[in-house]
């Protein structure tokens, strides 16, 4: 079957991988993709530095999707694997929130960290990389759930870990207290209030546009507010 050609990592990088030793805190060998990015997107690349052996590229928020798409598609970069999407808020509340993408190139055995900064007080919004990497789907939803950062272009940005009616805010923000904002009894009351069956209905499926494909009578029943499936 032609579809299943075994992908061998490192085909573009003859160097044998080895455990990194004595990695300096600052500086060191940089990932060549940083330079390539600078050439390709000169103005959108704000800073490139090497921290603990990993190359950080700080980019302009609006350009994230273009940059990531280029890294994914370009044959000399070939970052086909998205490890992680997450955000960082610093304890110093005046510092901007950072959104971080960890990319891997399986072909060249490279690791790259893309970062962008979001000023507090503005709308926390970054482009979604979901159109490039399907794996970003839940990672971005989680980031939204925990930090309240919206990913423009994500098809279904809902809370994922907390329940949808969760009222206390975004737990991983630094202004969120460790034990939550409400008293324990209030938290429990709200949790028990969340109807577990509420998400077990055709309405929810319509999130993914099932509605149009449903039989007419079922659509009528849903439109009338009748609960299905109970």
């Amino acid at each position: 079957m032609s579809k299943f050609e075994i992908v061998k990592p490192g085909s573009g990088n003859p160097k044998e991988p080895a455990t990194p030793k004595n990695v300096p805190n600052r500086g060191g060998e940089a990932n060549p993709s940083g330079i390539a990015l600078k050439e390709q997107f000169s103005a959108a690349i704000l800073r490139i530095d090497v921290v603990n052996g990993e190359t950080n590229v700080l980019v302009e928020t609006a350009k994230v999707l273009d940059i990531v798409r280029w890294l994914h598609d370009d044959a000399t970069q070939s970052y086909e694997y998205l490890s992680d999407v997450t955000a960082v808020e610093h304890r110093d509340l005046s510092m901007p929130i950072e959104v971080v993408w960890h990319l891997r190139s399986i072909k060249y055995r490279r690791f790259l960290r893309i970062k962008t900064q979001l000023k507090k007080g503005t709308k926390l919004e970054v482009p979604s990389v979901w159109p490039v990497y399907k794996g970003a789907d839940w990672l971005e939803r989680e980031c939204y759930d925990m930090f309240g950062i919206t990913f423009a272009g994500h098809y279904d940005l809902r809370r994922i870990l907390m329940w949808e009616q969760y009222k206390e805010g975004f737990p991983l923000r630094k202004d969120f207290p460790l034990r939550g904002r409400f008293s324990r009894s209030e938290q429990l009351r709200q949790a028990l209030d969340a109807n577990p069956e509420a998400k077990y209905s055709m309405e929810e499926l319509s999130v993914a546009d099932a509605f149009e494909e449903l039989p007419l009578d079922m659509r009528a029943r849903i439109a009338s507010g009748e609960k299905t499936g109970e």
């Binding site: 329940w163 949790a191 028990l192 209030d193 969340a194």
Partner: peptide, 10 residues
């Protein structure tokens, strides 16, 4: 977790 509270009650 709180999200599971209604389920164990149920």
């Amino acid at each position: 977790p709180f999200k599971l509270a209604p389920i164990i009650r149920r």
